[in-house]
Write a protein that binds this DNA or RNA. Structure first.
Lengths: 369, 369
DNA sequence: CTTAAGTACGTAAGCGCTTACGTGACGTGG
DNA sequence: CCACGTCACGTAAGCGCTTACGTACTTAAG
């Protein structure tokens, strides 16, 4: 790389002070049109543009918001946990940040390396978005006293001094269970959960139980199987579920409610291998409404959540907090939506059916969640 | 946010100079164990960790590599172009960066806003990865004289002073066409291309022509249709293709070779709607081997490319260049691999078949590619 | 003509670190 | 006992910007 020029050279070359150069490149007031032209010309001649780093140090803002997410890929071998979810969050975050002139710095916490990585990232950002399970409570607390932190998909409202963005898992799952029990009349359901420490998984299971209770059906204390939120895990969970039932002399459940789409897809695979007809013999549902959900056969009935919007809203929340550090603590809860396709027993068999969906509500924003 | 403490307070509190604090927090030599403990204790008491920004300015390195990618989402309405491809690149980049203690700053260039965004991002990074079509040649040149730039999936070796990472599109597509013509005996093929300015699309079409020529078949000058790399675009392209053929009194082609998986999936949808049996009446193939390719029915025959690895390799190349700016220009070409599934006419009908694949070669790294 | 309010700058003091260079203490070989 | 190398630090000069403050000049009101 050639020697970089600095604001001093630009200032000298255009016959003004560095302050004026800075003003021209920055906020845009306090100089005449003629001066502006001179400065821009000098900058262009030298191929110069201001150093973001120096700018950040002087102005105490660098226009970077960090995004920390968990990556279980390496520890979980083939069953890479839903990169799709995080990918969507990333894209949403990026678009909200770019819309504001900021950029997103991403880093995955892998197991124990969390704290050091988090500090390193935090030291380079104005604010931070932390996806659930990426960081311990203690680490979040440490960071939160240095910069604005927004937590994603965690039990909204649990923490003091930390903003949160999440979705209404409960009403989505309740609608789903009501549909399964009410419309299809299933009475024998099973739930395949995600990791036991996943707030989303916990909430979804709780809502599943509420749904069963509301239908007058008995509800188990624990998920019937743990699919770890992965396709492979879901497949294994369903295999065990089926084997257990068989061993106990029971038939397969009428419906398998999965904690996310990936596990549901794993379930579909196992059921196909075992020649169990879906949805005729067993219905299967997911959660997320990933793009893939409409492409599997039968197409997956699921609960849609606005994943990109979660990422976007998180970044907006960080930016808002940056603008007003004393604002009241903020909890955003985005709504979910039941998406009916073939796998629950609704009209199926056609490729590229229009989805039949529940109604959509406006997002709700509240404080003290 | 409370007032942040600085290295000065930590130094005073631990009874050493700021230089020593810096040494303890940084490179890790030039102090005794006792001193180290004192400094760390003071830092912990004050909840202090060094400012990445200040550190960057002083050390002329910030451990951030930027990733610029095009986002055609907004301009293309429903047909968001393959976010999946970029998502994978991002994840690959992230993992390579994290492995090196760096982080990745991402930003999407949307249409004309490109240059300003690029400068803003570049000013915050040590080096830059630019996905094909994210930036103009001129802008890349400007940036390249300030920091290391690596271009992705572009015609490898075209630019001076800019490293590149790409895949061997040609051999993948040639293998594919040989399979289609040789094994299945198809003689009437059609090609659905991506955007005319996409280097990948151009290369794949060129290889398609070579494949046809090698089989002694006539090759068109242009792709038979343009599907813009999107699912919706692919669907429309195939509709037009079919209608054209019908209008001209010709039958549908025996095989439709699509420039990427998403268009192939769109094709599958249209063919299903029109009750054209795949692969019995028309075979369909893609390119990329996205996760979804194995889930559609029939499962998609496609050419796999190591997308994550592309992102990872790009970051590694940036880092290498940072370490040795005078090293020879570097071009990395990763290999592709034919993945045979049902949609080309090979064994089909089972869910979760094992894929049958071509052989895998070691990646080739060369210079002056 | 005087005064007050702008406007268009320039001066220079940082922002919070890193690091080249210097210093003193200590050990070691001759 | 001295010269010299090593180690553990301290001193202080930046890194390349932003911005509070000050100054000179212009304009308009009184």
């Amino acid at each position: 790389m050639p020697e970089r020029s600095t604001i001093y050279e630009v200032a000298r070359r255009s016959g003004v002070s560095t302050a004026t150069v800075s003003r021209v490149m920055g906020n845009g007031t306090g100089f005449s049109e003629a001066t502006r032209a001179k400065v821009l010309a000098a900058a262009a001649e030298l191929d110069w543009f201001p150093s973001g780093t120096a700018r950040s140090l002087a102005s105490r803002r660098n226009g970077i918001v960090g995004l920390l997410f968990p990556d279980f890929g390496s520890s979980d071998d083939v069953d890479v946990e839903s990169p799709l979810y995080v990918d969507q969050v990333i894209r949403g975050a990026e678009s909200a940040a770019t819309a504001d002139g900021d950029a997103v710095l991403i880093a995955a916490t892998r197991g124990a390396s969390g704290r050091a990585l988090a500090l390193s990232v935090a030291s380079k950002c104005d604010g931070l978005v932390v996806v659930a399970r990426a960081l311990s409570e203690a680490d979040i607390a440490t960071l939160a006293q240095r910069l604005p932190v927004v937590v994603l998909s965690d039990q909204v409202g649990r923490r003091a001094h930390v903003d949160a963005v999440g979705v209404d898992n409960r009403s989505g799952v309740r609608d789903l269970v009501r549909h399964l029990t009410g419309v299809h009349g299933y009475t024998d359901l099973a739930f395949v959960g995600g990791p036991a420490d996943s707030p989303d998984s916990i909430e979804r299971f709780a809502a599943y139980r509420e749904g069963l209770a509301a239908a007058g059906l008995p509800a188990p204390r624990q998920p019937d199987a743990d699919g770890r939120f992965t396709e492979g895990g879901g497949a294994r969970a369903v295999e065990e579920l089926l084997d257990h039932r068989t061993a106990a002399g029971h038939p397969a459940p009428q419906a398998i409610v999965c904690g996310n789409d990936e596990m549901a897809i794993g379930a579909l695979g196992v059921l196909a291998l075992r020649h169990v007809a879906v949805p005729d013999r067993v219905a299967v549902t997911g959660f997320d409404d990933l793009a893939i959900a409409r492409h599997v056969r039968p197409a997956l009935t699921t609960v849609a959540q606005p994943i990109r919007e979660i990422g976007a809203e998180a970044v907006r929340t960080v930016i808002a907090r940056l603008a007003d550090g004393d604002a009241e603590r903020r909890s955003v809860v985005l709504t979910t939506r039941l998406v009916l396709r073939g796998s629950c027993g609704c009209a199926y068999g056609h490729a590229h059916d229009d989805d039949r969906t529940g109604h959509r509500q406006a997002p709700q924003v509240g404080s003290r969640g």
